[in-house]
């Protein structure tokens, strides 16, 4: 959609977008880097840490930027990352 047709919904301020909770199973990571590279919002980056398999698992840079597309969940060959929607209580 061309950018000029974008409308900001009137209730944009009121709508509460679901928030992501990113789970990384660090020791399952084999360090391929797919989740970091292909996250559309660049939520992840390589950590300094060295896991049980001798690689640097990803770490979360900014969880609030996550749009819960779950691309990382699907593209991870090692089932080492997944996203859950935070239970949405008041002010989530």
């Amino acid at each position: 959609m061309p950018v000029r047709l974008w409308r900001k919904p009137l209730d944009a301020e009121k709508v509460k977008l679901p928030k992501a909770e990113i789970h990384i199973l660090k020791n399952q990571c084999k360090g391929c880097g797919f989740c970091i590279q292909f996250c559309p919002k660049k939520v992840l980056e390589e950590s300094e840490e060295i896991n049980a398999r001798g690689v640097h698992p990803p770490k979360v840079v900014d969880e609030s930027k996550c749009i819960i597309c779950s691309f990382c969940t699907s593209v991870c060959p090692d089932f080492a990352i997944f996203i859950v929607e935070k239970p949405c209580k008041e002010g989530c």
């Binding site: 084999k30 699907s74 060959p77």
Partner: peptide
Amino acid sequence: MPHIWCSGCGNGIILNC
């Protein structure tokens, strides 16, 4: 688990999908 596949191998993605 863990599976035998190398780091960066696509097999795990296929299994995942």
